[in-house]
Amino acid sequence: MSVTVSSPADDTPLLRVSSVSKSYGARTGCEDVSFELWPGEVLAVVGESGSGKTTLLNCISSRLMPTSGTVSYRMRDHTWRELYRMSEAERRFLMRTDWGFVHQNPADGLRMTVSAGANVGERLMAVGDRHYGNIRSTAIDWLGRVEIGADRIDDEPRAFSGGMRQRLQIARNLVTSPRLVFMDEPTGGLDVSVQARLLDLLRGLVADLGLAAIVVTHDLAVARLLSHRMMVMKDGRVIETGLTDRVLDDPREAYTQLLVSSILQV
Rank of each mutant, 00 (worst) to 15 (best):
V3Y: 11
S6D: 14
S6L: 11
L15M: 12
R16W: 13
R16E: 15
S19D: 13
S23P: 04
Y24K: 10
A26V: 14
R27H: 05
V33R: 03
P39E: 02
V42C: 05
V42F: 00
G47H: 10
E48K: 13
S51K: 08
T54L: 11
I60C: 02
S68G: 15
T70N: 13
V71L: 05
V71A: 06
R74F: 05
D77E: 06
H78C: 10
W80G: 12
R81Q: 14
R81M: 10
E82T: 15
Y84I: 03
R85Q: 15
R85T: 15
S87Q: 01
E90Q: 15
R92E: 00
F93M: 13
L94R: 11
M95I: 07
D98R: 14
G100A: 08
Q104D: 04
N105F: 08
P106Y: 01
A107S: 14
D108C: 09
G109D: 04
M112H: 06
G117E: 09
N119E: 06
V120Q: 07
E122W: 02
L124R: 10
L124A: 07
V127Q: 07
R130A: 12
H131I: 13
Y132M: 08
G133T: 14
G133P: 10
I135M: 11
I140G: 12
I140W: 03
D141L: 12
W142F: 08
G144W: 01
V146E: 06
E147M: 14
A150R: 15
I153E: 10
D154S: 14
E156M: 10
E156N: 13
G162Y: 08
R167H: 11
L174F: 07
T176I: 00
T176Q: 03
E185D: 05
V194T: 13
A196H: 07
L198W: 00
L199F: 03
L205N: 03
D208S: 13
A212H: 05
I214R: 02
V215A: 04
H218L: 04
V222Q: 06
R229I: 00
V232E: 04
M233W: 02
E240G: 08
V247I: 12
L248P: 06
L248R: 09
D249W: 01
R252T: 12
E253K: 08
L258W: 00
V260N: 06
S261M: 05
I263E: 04
L264Q: 09
